[in-house]
């Protein structure tokens, strides 16, 4: 229904065009071209060209350094969708979805608390404290989690102290999820915060006034009103975690091969297959591009800009 309404929105009265517009338009076109040239060149050289090279490489089966690049077919892509590797792709998506979900579940209350409950003066400080971990290296954060989760680590020491059986988390998918959630939670909170901060308390009061319980207000007002921010946060975390390398590598051990790790192995690992790695990279690029397109289309622009 709202969509229809949007279409009917406003029919701008057509202004009669000033006659000089065409010439001026052309001048602007060249001007714009010149202004865009440096960034265009930059984009072409550092984004378009390398992507094309990766694409070309992806069409060469079993290519290793020193071999001639001779694109011959899509075997690499077909291979990516074979049993084991399909599982790697699915696992990566699972990790990304899991991370997105847990970041949302954990991040929303935090962002809500900072952005809505806290007095204005405290918000920035609190937000700063919350995103402080982002100032440390992601590698360092993963190592911190290793020392917490390892069999004789902090977590198990606490469990043993309370006479509970120790648990084996390190080198398992759970460890990867924990690490990735920790890594991406600040991003989620930051984006949700900008959405939640814009929440009009009067609107929430209006809902209460009309008879909505707090839970109903949350479902029918808070979530819809912040949904562009939620979407932006989810997509951003999804994009980031889909390509995450450090957390699965350090926390997942042998259990959690992801696309990023597999790509790394194809280029820099002990087995090298740049063609297969390129095909996997292209798949990742395509997946991320789709996610970014969704983000631009439906996401809260102002939230992502913040």
């Amino acid at each position: 229904m709202p969509k229809k309404a949007r279409k009917t929105k406003s029919k701008e009265p057509k202004l009669s065009k000033p006659p000089k517009l065409k010439e001026r338009g052309q001048g602007n076109f060249f001007e714009a071209l010149i202004l865009l040239l440096p960034s265009g060149l930059w984009l072409f050289l550092l984004l378009v060209l390398p992507t094309l090279v990766i694409f070309q490489l992806s069409l060469v089966p079993d290519i290793k350094p020193g071999m001639v690049v001779d694109p011959s077919g899509i075997e690499n892509y077909l291979r990516a969708f074979e049993g084991t590797f399909l599982w790697v792709i699915l696992r990566s998506i699972f990790f990304a979805l899991g991370t997105t979900f847990s970041c949302l579940i954990l991040g929303f209350p935090i962002a809500y608390w900072i952005g809505y409950m806290l007095p204005r003066g405290w918000r920035n400080l609190c937000l700063l404290a919350f995103i402080l971990p982002l100032w440390t290296s992601s590698l360092l954060r993963s190592y911190a989690w290793i020392s917490i989760l390892r069999p004789t680590g902090l977590l198990n020491s606490v469990l043993v102290y309370f006479d509970l059986p120790p648990i084996q988390i390190l080198n398992s998918p759970i460890a990867v999820l924990i690490g990735m959630t920790y890594s991406y939670l600040p991003f989620m909170v930051l984006i949700l915060y900008t959405a939640i901060e814009k929440l009009d308390s009067r609107v929430l009061e209006a809902a209460a006034d009309l008879g909505a319980k707090p839970s109903v207000i949350f479902e029918k007002i808070t979530i819809p009103q912040t949904s562009p921010g939620i979407l932006a946060g989810c997509l951003l975390v999804f994009i980031g975690s889909l390509g995450d390398f450090v957390d699965p590598e350090l926390l997942g051990g042998a259990s959690s091969m992801t696309m990023a790790r597999l790509i790394y192995n194809q280029f820099l690992g002990t087995t090298q297959n740049w063609g297969f790695g390129s095909a996997l990279s292209m798949l990742l690029i395509i997946a991320v591009s789709i996610a970014i397109a969704l983000l631009l289309k439906y996401g809260d622009r102002s939230a992502t800009e913040a």
């Binding site: 079993d62 084991t84 790697v88 042998a254 091969m257 192995n265 087995t271 297959n273 297969f276």
Partner: peptide
């Protein structure tokens, strides 16, 4: 070498 590599990739990816 390609056989080794393929098995290795599968082993580590599983």
């Amino acid at each position: 070498s390609a056989i080794f590599d393929d098995y290795w990739t599968r082993l580590t990816s599983a």
